[in-house]
Design a protein around this nucleic acid. Sequence first.
DNA 1: CTCGACTCCTGTTAGC
DNA 2: TGCTAACAGGAGTCGA
Length: 260
Amino acid sequence: MPEGVEIEYYRRAADRAIGREIASIDASDTWFTKEGTTQESLDDALVGEIVIGTRRIGKLLILELGNGARLGLRFGMTGRILVDGKGPIEYLEYSSKRNETAWDRFTMFFADGGDLRIRDPRRLGGVILEPDEGALGPDAFTVAPKHFRTRVAVGPVAIKARLLDQSRVAGIGNLIADETLWRSGIDPARQAGDLSDNEVKKLHRHLKRVLADFVRDGGSHSGKLQASRVRGGCCPRCGQVLDRREVGGRTTFSCPHHQA
DNA sequence: CTCGACTCCTGTTAGC
DNA sequence: TGCTAACAGGAGTCGA
């Protein structure tokens, strides 16, 4: 469930790596290194270098190194970041509440004795040297209304599927999408291109509010809809039993009464 | 190019 | 009690 909101927390945590020298890398889980990245390529590019910055595009966290190298970190659905043993999030919705060092899939050891690691029970995350940032759309936190309209509100695809498409706008996951559509009063299955100008504006406005609320309240599980995202759950606004469907390949909850 | 269907990963939980 | 099957969702691949 880490969505753009959680990755922003992770990025802030990763800021604690800035200024520190990388002594060694453990990328021995070869499933976790993606797109040709290997233990050897990481050793060559990173060991002895200093972390000089962090960035985030959608759900992709990027560490910038003194030699110009970039390291991309992905967290899948259950991945957490730990810096010097501490993480910004204790446990994730839909993930284990246990903490097992066996779930550490990637570790960056610093010369000062600390480390940065990804703890991911389900191994859906990954590590990519020089990730392709061009494949991602503009970040959901900063996307302008104009870009939101031209990239998202087009075509016959369900609006929810569009919101989840990282190449359109990056950072929206299942919970942010459901909460935003619920607040906007828009049915997730509506064709993206059929939304009125007013609905598109409303959607964009609510997206920004949802992101701000989720950052303030602790994560993507902190929405008003979240407690009702269970079979038989009722709409917090009108009390109707929520629809549970699959839209855009994801479990989707929506109110049959006020989302049209 | 677009888009739905399928696949991957594995801990948790519902149900028999 | 112990087992199995369904479920969770991010993201890549494939074929129409």
